[in-house]
Design a binder for these strands. Structure first.
Lengths: 220, 220
DNA sequence: GACTATTTTAAACGAACGTTTGAACTAAAT
DNA sequence: ATTTAGTTCAAACGTTCGTTTAAAATAGTC
């Protein structure tokens, strides 16, 4: 049974690896199962055998990729607030806990496409995509929103939401559209070899933006 | 000939209007010509008659939408730098010239989907999409980069490029993913009825982020 | 009213898609 | 050696896609 299971898992993972790269590069609808099974060197029918359908394949691919990132985000934030129990947590440390697990994906070359797939997912439509995002996002939003609230006590809730949204946009754009940044800078500004300059600049940028003492009145 | 041209233009525009909305909602590959022609109440073959192919249809849709935005961006920046000839231009005014023409698209309900289509285009693949984006972006990048350089004389070129990239991410995310912001805030933070609070907050956020005096050394 | 050019229409084309099927294959258990 | 459960495989299924075709309809010209 050991070898049988090894084969099983092997085929499953080869399909998911190939699907992850092809979905990120060409999109979900534009990527055919035949393209995936060709790249994975498996039979066409094995996708429906192991996953049931193409829809459930992408769900598994996304969950496999996003869960270690998000659990790491929660773990680091919990450690951060635990060690500083009571006293306010520095804003830049909170943002570091949120950004870094995503950036660390770039260390693994086989995962470099996944963040682009996640960014693309925001624009994909379908019965499953929105559900996955909300399902994986909601457990993350509350703890981080509370951490931001204690770090920015002078701001109203909606103001924090606005600024968190802006920071999210910067991060997502940075990790999923890095190619356009490379093009703009003639490859001077890159994220591939070492993400530390990128994440430090991103933290500096978004910390300054969120710390801005001036705020619009009320929630209008 | 007058009525003939009217019909011609009418069918063309009805196709483009329907395509813009459907492409934005469901993506390029997932939207069939039959869905477009049904929504536009025109015959299926008229797409190929008027545009030649589905690929050339999306090119025309994108160009029709992006050109008035980008020409307005250039016009307003030119006026801004002309009136303040010589003296440095305030950073927030430069960003206002860049952001506002995009946000003003939300005033026209028929155009509300176009910015989402543009955001989605960043993640679409194809021989035409990247070419359009670069073709329409390059004439914009140089003037705005120069304006940012004079507004931020203490920063190196690459540092400006990084921060401009972060600001771009915030803006694109705001105009194309406003639904997730509404969900996070229980519809307290919205952009639909009035974009002025959104654009002012976005300008405040990105101005603070770009003005940050601290900068990483060198271009590493 | 006949003629020409332009546009619209219904129908069909071949190709590619996700999925299903049933037989062949593999490896551990009896 | 036979059985059994799990997996792989080639082939085919029905559907949908973008595109093409040729006839019908429309509008302007003489």
């Amino acid at each position: 049974m050991a070898i049988t299971e090894a084969k099983h898992v092997d085929t499953r993972d080869r399909i998911m690896d190939a699907a992850e790269g092809l979905f990120a590069r060409g999109g979900f609808n534009a990527t055919s199962l035949r393209a995936i099974t060709n790249e994975a060197n498996v039979n066409l029918a094995s996708v429906n055998y192991h996953f049931g359908s193409k829809d459930r394949l992408i769900v598994e691919v996304i969950k496999r990729g996003i869960r270690p990132i998000n659990s790491e985000r929660l773990t680091r934030l919990a450690e951060l607030t635990k060690n500083k129990n009571g006293s306010p947590v520095p804003l830049e440390k909170v943002l570091d806990c949120f950004y870094r697990p995503a950036f660390e994906y770039f260390q693994d070359n086989s995962k470099i496409n996944f963040l682009r797939l996640l960014g693309r997912l925001l624009y994909e439509t379908g019965p499953f995509t929105k559900a996955i995002l909300e399902e994986e996002w909601m457990p993350l939003f509350e703890p981080y929103f509370n951490a931001l609230k204690t770090a920015l006590p002078h701001l109203e809730d909606d103001e924090i939401t606005w600024r968190f949204h802006f920071a999210l946009g910067s991060m997502i754009f940075t990790v999923s559209q890095y190619e356009s940044l490379e093009a703009m800078s003639c490859d001077n500004c890159t994220i591939r070899d070492d993400f530390e300059p990128a994440i430090q600049r991103l933290i500096a940028f978004t910390t300054a933006g969120m710390n801005n003492p001036h705020a619009l009145k009320s929630n209008s």
